[in-house]
Amino acid sequence: MTGATVSPLRFPRIAVLGAGHVGPVIARVAIAAGYHVSIAASGDPEKIALITQVLAPGAEPRWAADAVEGSDLVVLAIPLHKFAAFDPGVVADKLVVDTMNYWPPIDGVQAMFDDRRYCSSEIVQHRLSRSTIVKTLNHIGYHELEDDRRPVGSRERRALGVAGDDAGAVDVAADVIERIGYDTVRLDSLRAGRRLQPGGPAFGVSLRRTEFELALRAEAA
């Protein structure tokens, strides 16, 4: 079960949940692309005000509930081990971009995610059943996300995958990725997002769109 069907939005307002390594970089590149961005951590926004000012100037630090309420798209960029304590009600009825990875060598075994029948974003969707989940931005390093951006038409423009069960939600997320500076390859289901995870053919590899598509097809063969 997922949230309501998502209609394309021309310029969605973005809330980034997570102010560690990943969140501020996502906020920064989204602001550079012209988006209105708010950012939240797990507590008082005053605690991340300086971090935001330095690492994501222009982003608005807010309480998580307030950031989400004023947004059209929510980027979930919290540490995976904190997801079990995350309140699903905060993002109910929202389009949520899941950037998290389950990587036991790094994170240790997380019981919630240690079910090989599902990709990690499917497990996120099961728990956030009133939200619509799209998987992307998990297979590029946060340190590369800013540096690897290229304008449309560049021969060096890198591709990123966008996976989801709701075509409208995938379109919204893909448009953001493209405006940030990447080509996109749409995967037709959240389940297919396992190909973007650690061990998948697209994880941590810089590929152009054609190369990305070929890698996915080769892995599926």
Results as ranks from 00 to 15, higher is better:
Leu9Lys: 09
Pro45Asn: 12
Asp66Gln: 12
Val54His: 14
Ala65Pro: 01
Ser42Lys: 15
Ala4Lys: 15
Ala49Ser: 13
Gln53Ile: 00
Ala59Arg: 04
Asp66Leu: 08
Pro57His: 01
Asp93Asn: 12
Val74Asp: 10
Leu17Ser: 11
Gly43Ala: 14
Lys94Pro: 14
His21Glu: 05
Val68Tyr: 14
Gly89Leu: 13
Ile31Asp: 09
Val22Ser: 04
Ala67Gly: 00
Ala65Gly: 04
Ser71Tyr: 07
Val54Trp: 08
Ser71Val: 08
Pro24Leu: 13
Ala40Tyr: 02
Pro24His: 09
Ala56Thr: 01
Gly20Phe: 05
Ala27Met: 11
Ala59Thr: 00
Val16Leu: 10
His21Trp: 07
Pro8Asn: 11
Gly43Pro: 02
Val22Ala: 08
Gly20Thr: 04
Pro88Gly: 12
Val74Cys: 11
Trp63Ile: 04
Ala19Met: 11
Tyr35Gln: 01
Pro24Asp: 03
Ile31Arg: 10
Val68Glu: 06
Pro12Gln: 07
Leu95Val: 05
Phe83Trp: 09
Lys94His: 15
Val16Tyr: 04
Ala15Arg: 11
Asp72His: 12
Val90Cys: 02
Phe83Pro: 12
Leu55Gln: 06
Ala92Lys: 15
Pro79Met: 05
Ala92Phe: 09
Ile78Arg: 00
Ala92Glu: 09
Leu76Ile: 11
Gly89Asn: 11
Leu76Val: 07
Tyr35Lys: 02
Gly58Cys: 06
Ile31Asn: 01
Lys47Phe: 12
Ala19Cys: 15
Ala33Tyr: 04
Val16Asn: 09
Ala59Leu: 08
Pro57Thr: 06
Leu73Asp: 10
Gly20Arg: 13
Gly89Arg: 07
Val75Met: 13
Ala49Leu: 07
Phe83Ala: 07
Val16Asp: 03
Ala15Pro: 13
Glu60Arg: 15
Ala84Glu: 14
Lys82Asp: 06
Ala4Met: 14
Ile51Phe: 11
Lys82Arg: 10
Asp93Glu: 10
Ile14Thr: 00
Pro45Ala: 10
Ala59Pro: 01
Gly18Arg: 10
Asp93Ala: 03
Ala92Gln: 13
Val91Pro: 03
Thr52Ala: 14
Ala32Met: 08
Ser71Ala: 14
Ala64Pro: 06
Ile51Gly: 06
Lys82His: 12
Pro8Thr: 15
Ala4Leu: 12
Pro88Lys: 09
Asp66Gly: 13
Ala77Ile: 00
Ala33Met: 02
Val68Phe: 13
Phe83Gly: 15
Gly23Ala: 08
Phe83Glu: 02
Ser7Pro: 00
Leu80Trp: 07
Glu60Asn: 06
His36Cys: 14
Lys47Glu: 00
Val90Met: 14
Leu80Ser: 06
Val22Thr: 11
Val6Asn: 01
Gly43Asp: 09
Thr52Gly: 05
Ser7Glu: 05
Val22His: 08
Ala65Arg: 05
Gly70Tyr: 07
Ala40Trp: 02
Glu69Val: 00
Gly58Trp: 11
Ala15Phe: 15
Ile48Trp: 15
Lys47Ala: 05
Thr2Met: 11
Ala77Met: 00
